[in-house]
Nucleic acid binder design. Structure first.
Length: 225
DNA sequence: AAAAAGTCCAACCGCGACAGG
DNA sequence: ACCTGTCGCGGTTGGACTTTT
């Protein structure tokens, strides 16, 4: 049995108050991020570290770009999802000012439906052969929302066997029914330091089976660099 | 106008990865 | 090599808000 991450009886849960936000902001401004475990106590917050981290990353960080997603961001998310699956942190990493939670929510509430309406299966980004009839569209769209069929989204097909072979890139584009117009080189222009680091690490070290790294040398993804 | 249904999003939970002892 | 603590991620939930009936 795993220990709880913190002493739950002494922590607040639910929505954050303005005072709590301010305490967290003030503390991080002074001391920087890090050591989420001790931060709540040091900052005088009755929250668990996880909760503080989440609040900061998803809501309080000064570099967050809030507001509606643009068409270009939509396209980019769809393309990255086709490539990476539900690895929201990686996808968000390509969208400056967006968080993984925000991207995930946006995908589940908007983009899934958008794809379904275009006759594309959001799970594997392939064209659905029999497009829904107009009266069926709404039903299909609804069933694709987060509250409809929660989860079961696309994971890139991988064969992580003993040799750690990765086949992410081809997973969603294996046949002619996949989304045909992906042009990652044109769309993605700003190299991510973190991704570059990941790739460099992978080059310098022994291969490891790691969530951060296992896609890094995928041929298609090397286009990002 | 009110109830029901649908949507959105902040926050929580559980798990895996990883570092350090 | 194993254990433990911490962090980060993705899945899921709860409830506020909006739209439809």
């Amino acid at each position: 049995m795993r220990k709880p991450c913190c002493d739950k009886q002494d922590t607040n849960k639910g929505a954050w108050s303005k005072q709590e936000d301010q305490k967290l902001i003030d503390y991080i401004r002074t001391h920087g991020e890090g050591c989420w475990r001790t931060l709540p106590r040091d900052a005088g917050l009755l929250r668990c570290g996880k909760s503080c981290r989440l609040r900061w990353i998803n809501y309080l960080r000064p570099d967050l770009k809030r507001g509606n997603f643009g068409e270009d961001e939509d396209d980019l998310i769809i393309k990255l999802h086709a490539l990476l699956g539900n690895r929201w942190s990686l996808i968000a990493g390509r969208l400056p000012g967006r968080t993984d939670n925000e991207v995930k929510n946006y995908w589940n509430s908007h983009l899934r439906r958008k794809l379904v309406n275009k006759g594309i299966d959001p799970n594997n980004h392939r064209l659905v052969h029999s497009l829904p009839l107009p009266h069926q569209k709404r039903e299909a769209a609804l069933s694709a929302t987060s509250s409809g069929s929660r989860s079961h989204a696309c994971r890139p097909v991988r064969s992580l066997g003993d040799n750690d072979h990765v086949s992410d890139a081809g997973s969603c584009f294996e046949d002619d029914t996949s989304v045909p117009d992906l042009n990652l080189e044109l769309t993605i222009t700003v190299p991510s330091p973190s991704l570059s680091v990941a790739v460099e690490e992978r080059r310098n070290n022994e291969p490891t089976v790691s969530k951060e790294h296992d896609f890094a040398l995928s041929p298609a993804l090397l286009l990002f660099r």
